[in-house]
């Protein structure tokens, strides 16, 4: 647990933590509003956005790709609404049509364009590159207090931390209206809450968190963290406040344990290779959900 840990494991771990918690926080409200699959849809549609941004700029740079991804996510939400209303198609099916088609378009664009020079492929988008987010300037724990070394931290860390702060601030400020639109939307409307606008803001914020996390940790963590920790918490406690707190704790634990099982346990067991950290973190959140579904005190429906 010395300088190697600080340089190689601390940054990915912190980025993973910020990403997991930033996704799990809005997930609490999404699963109550039966919009859990939004994360799934978003993480598929960002691929064409990223590829288009790459084709325009010709390089893998952060901001154009974030804008491309966000643009694709917004376009998808608009198209889904269009099909749902104009075509009178149920929202799940409308979502299925749009996200698969956009993902297919993204894959095709990627195959057609010359991306052999850069690190941009479908697998990277799915699995992320958590393990590669290392901090070369670190020489030990002391580096955490050296401004020069801190400047060498992966930019993803600062970005993910900012997103986590923004999501937390949104939830803190709009706590009561958010709770109301989750449990009783008609009543919320009579109290003068702009439920449609707030719902859209929630989805937009989730999209921002997902896009930021997507770049750093891949879409698997995003989808799993939006749903699994909140769903686990929902089976364990009955109030929204405790559900949110539990979901954050669970996201934290899943990330730490998952990272450990992927990066360290195989080595301790004598294997020479590490496993996918993103996959392990998401699997760990699934293990928690399985336990809660079997033993959680509030797992059954209230009748």
């Amino acid at each position: 647990m010395g300088s190697d840990f600080v340089a190689l494991s601390l940054p990915p771990l912190l980025i993973g933590l910020c990403a997991s918690m930033a996704c799990a926080l809005p997930g609490n409200f999404l699963i109550l509003r039966k919009q859990a699959l939004i994360g799934d849809a978003i993480s598929h549609v960002v691929l064409p956005g990223i590829v288009v941004a790459f084709l325009f700029t010709g390089q893998v740079s952060t901001w154009p790709m974030m804008i491309g991804a966000a643009g694709a996510a917004i376009l998808a939400v608009l198209l889904i609404e269009l099909i749902r209303r104009v075509g009178r198609i149920e929202s799940g099916a409308a979502m299925g049509v749009i996200f698969t088609s956009m993902f297919a378009a993204g894959v095709l664009l990627l195959e057609q364009s010359d991306t052999s020079q850069v690190h941009l492929d479908v697998e990277h988008a799915l699995f992320g590159n958590l393990e590669s987010l290392i901090w070369l300037d670190a020489e030990g724990w002391a580096s955490l207090f050296q401004i020069k070394a801190l400047a060498g931290l992966p930019v993803e860390l600062l970005r993910m931390a900012t997103v986590l702060l923004a999501v937390s601030a949104f939830v803190y400020i709009f706590w009561r209206p958010l709770a109301l639109i989750c449990f009783d939307e008609p009543y919320a409307r009579t109290r003068g809450i702009a439920a449609t606008a707030l719902g859209f803001a929630l989805v937009t914020l989730t999209a921002i968190a997902a896009v930021a996390a997507f770049d750093a940790v891949g879409s698997i963590i995003v989808i799993a963290m939006i749903i699994c920790p909140p769903a686990t918490a929902r089976l364990m406690v009955n109030s929204l406040r405790s559900q949110v707190i539990y979901s954050q704790v669970l996201a934290f634990m899943a990330t730490v344990l998952g990272y450990m099982f992927a990066g360290y346990v195989p080595l301790w067991l004598g294997f020479s290779n590490t496993l996918s950290a993103a996959g392990m973190i998401a699997s760990m959140s699934g293990v928690f959900l399985a336990c809660a579904a079997l033993f959680g005190p509030h797992r059954r429906r209230n009748i």
């Binding site: 699963i31 859990a36 699959l37 799934d40 799993a224 749903i227 996918s276 993103a278 699934g286 959900l289």
Partner: peptide
Amino acid sequence: DAAIGSVLSVFFAFGVV
């Protein structure tokens, strides 16, 4: 939807592992 989302993400993630 939560059941579908959790199964697809966790199974897929374990597959990646």
